[in-house]
């Protein structure tokens, strides 16, 4: 019985979300007809790929009930590291491997500090992020790296197409498919969720909770590296401010998705990031200056978590109840 109710509630939320996407898309298309052009849709797919990968990484961390504010710093450092490897003449795969390795080590450091030594997550990741942002200047003192970028073929990640869709979108879909399967169809996923929702009970159930928390930070850093890789592919060079714009959309995607679709999950993040990217690209197409983008995302994030918060729902229910009561009273009088 309640299983059916549950499914009904889930599908209602899903339908509501699709309606929201259609509404936002329609409104943007009305305001700016170019929104539905092939170039614009391609752009959305590309930006969604980078934003979506970073948001997916954050999703793991949020599922174990922690925060990661080092995304921008990790992005800057790994961008410059990959750039330096490419500039040294190494093949692309080596640069990617180096980036992922560095990201994994940073994630492991933050994750271990937080899970094993009990440091507070927010401040620890801010500190780690700051150190990484400083380390990004090690290679060139802050100058842009672009040598060998063209020869090494990194731009193909941005330009090449497969079955009519950009490679970056395929990367996004592949990573999300794997993540969805792992988080929602395997024991590993159950262990992640159990760790987040009750760490003690998970430990008593034989789950290595500290390892999962550390793993979440490692996954977050690796996803950030993948996101940065796509950004490097798009711009064709590495700079220390690459990835500075990854953090806000990631937070907005995770929390907006969770608010609309009823809980943090891989699909909710995908939905959240789709909405955010549509809005961002739509606005930039309409000529809204770049500096409004953070503000727009922030507003959407706030509005989203506020509208779907328990307190707001409580107020709403109260309002409905009061109305019903009034109606009943006036009906009684009449």
């Amino acid at each position: 019985m309640s299983g059916l109710q549950d499914m009904a509630r889930q599908s209602a939320r899903g339908l509501g979300f699709l309606a929201l996407v259609a509404l936002v898309g329609g409104a943007l298309a009305l305001a700016e007809p170019r929104f539905l052009s092939a170039a614009s849709l391609n752009g959305i797919a590309r930006h969604m790929a980078a934003n979506g990968l970073a948001a997916l990484g954050l999703t793991f961390v949020v599922i174990v009930r922690k925060f990661d504010l080092s995304i921008s710093g990790v992005a800057a450092f790994t961008a410059m590291s990959m750039g330096a490897v490419i500039a040294a003449g190494a093949p692309l795969w080596l640069a990617v491997a180096a980036g992922i390795a560095i990201g994994a080590v940073i994630g492991l450091i933050s994750g271990t500090a937080i899970s094993r030594f009990g440091l507070p997550d927010i401040v620890t990741t801010i500190a780690v992020g700051s150190i990484c942002a400083g380390l990004a200047f090690l290679y060139t003192g802050g100058r842009s790296i672009f040598q060998n970028f063209f020869q090494v073929g990194i731009t193909d990640l941005n330009d090449a197409r497969l079955l009519g869709l950009g490679v970056s979108l395929w990367i996004l879909l592949a990573v999300y498919a794997v993540a969805w399967f792992v988080m929602h169809r395997t024991r590993t996923g159950m262990a992640f969720y159990a760790t987040g929702e009750n760490q003690v009970a998970a430990h008593f159930s034989g789950i290595a909770t500290r390892r999962y928390i550390a793993l979440a930070y490692v996954m977050c850093a690796i996803c950030t590296v993948l996101a940065v890789l796509l950004i490097l592919a798009e711009s064709g060079n590495a700079e220390t401010n690459k990835g500075a714009n990854l953090m806000m959309p990631a937070y907005a995607g995770v929390f907006l998705g969770a608010a609309i679709l009823g809980g943090t999950s891989v699909l909710a993040t995908l939905g959240g990031i789709l909405l955010i990217t549509m809005l961002l690209d739509g606005f930039s197409l309409m000529g809204v200056p770049y500096y409004y983008s953070d503000g727009v995302i922030s507003l959407i994030l706030l509005a989203g978590v506020l509208a779907f918060s328990d307190t707001a729902r409580g107020y709403l229910a109260g309002l409905v109840a009061v109305r019903a009561l009034r109606r009943a009273r006036s009906g009684g009088k009449a």
Binding site: M190, Y193, E197, N198, A201, A202, F204, S205
Partner: peptide, 15 residues
Amino acid sequence: EGLVLSRPALFNVPL
């Protein structure tokens, strides 16, 4: 120590 309270029996029983 025993239960993930936010989750149903279906989640807790096999944990």
